[in-house]
């Protein structure tokens, strides 16, 4: 049994209450939701919060809502819920792709989208998903609510714009017609952190050419989307040559570090290989969606 350092624990009853508790207990308090990152770190005594503020009773943050042109997802929504939601799979197939390879069912039953984004582990999958889908994070604090784009929200490995006294409450995904998305990960074993992964979202124009595109990488040393992908692809029809060009761009943009999961050259190769794969799949899905829209 691994034993964390001593800490105190309190269950928040509402979002307002959680914010009060954060203010009251200050910088040595931490929010706990699914706990699958924080608790192992505490057991290894790498994290030593004095207070844990448990937000698992905040059912007000556990929802998936379609609201006009946006899909709003509460920060306490569990991975399993995201995985199983057919509406999400239809609108954003990348989410189901990613959720299928996030850890294992035990972790997915507890882990939350908010926890994943706030942990901002470089090998964390949903940050990449949110980046390529152009998601917006809704953060609340003593000063009220603010919305942040993913580049504003996600500042780097283990770093976000969420202040110590703030709480991520919601993630909003813009719904775009004629759009497809996809995610693919390479791991040494189910449930291991990614050796590398890539996600893509592609919007097609009416003539079948690419109107917009984004590619993101996971665990490959790139915190934002691959710059220049949209510029490279826009106005062109999907083709293997085009995907290969985008793959090269992604490999160049990646900045992986060598570890037990693999050396730098392999990880760069994955940036290329996986980018081509997810673009191929995202384009096919976008074309399918566009065809369905036309039929409808």
């Amino acid at each position: 049994m691994q034993i964390p350092a001593p800490f105190d624990y309190v269950r928040a009853t509402t979002v307002d209450n959680a914010l009060e508790l954060l203010t009251r207990h200050g910088p040595d308090s931490r929010i706990i939701a699914g706990g699958h990152s924080l608790l192992p770190m505490m057991k290894l005594r790498l994290a030593r919060p004095e207070w844990l503020i448990d937000i698992n009773d905040l059912y007000e943050l556990d929802y998936i809502l379609r609201d006009g042109g946006e899909l709003r997802v509460g920060a306490l929504t569990r991975h399993t819920t995201l995985l199983e939601a057919d509406e999400i799979a239809e609108l954003f197939p990348i989410v189901r792709d990613a959720e299928q390879v996030i850890a294992d069912p035990v972790v997915r039953n507890r882990g939350t989208i908010g926890g994943s984004l706030c942990q901002a582990d470089p090998a964390e999958d949903l940050s990449t998903v949110c980046h390529v889908l152009g998601a917006v994070a809704v953060v609340r604090g003593p000063a009220g609510e603010r919305t942040l784009t993913m580049p504003e929200f996600h500042r780097g490995p283990y770093q976000t714009a969420v202040g110590q006294d703030e709480l991520l409450c919601e993630v909003r995904f813009p719904i775009r017609p004629r759009t497809g998305s996809a995610y693919e990960k390479v791991e040494r074993r189910a449930g291991d952190w990614a050796v590398g992964a890539a996600g893509a979202a592609v919007t097609l124009a009416e003539d079948g050419s690419i109107a917009d595109a984004a590619v993101g990488l996971t665990a490959l040393g790139l915190d934002q989307t691959v710059a220049g992908v949209a510029g490279l692809l826009r106005g062109k029809h999907p083709s293997e040559e085009l995907f290969a060009d985008a793959g090269r761009l992604a490999a160049e943009a990646s900045d992986p570090v060598a570890d037990q999961r693999g050396p730098v050259d392999y990880k760069r190769h994955l940036a290329d290989e996986l980018t081509r794969r997810v673009l191929r799949r995202a384009c096919a899905r976008a074309a399918q969606t566009a065809a369905q829209t036309q039929e409808g």
């Binding site: 040494r188 050796v195 050396p263 392999y266 990880k267």
Partner: peptide, 8 residues
């Protein structure tokens, strides 16, 4: 025979 070692 991890993915990286197989690829190498």
């Amino acid at each position: 025979c991890t993915p990286a070692r197989v690829w190498a």
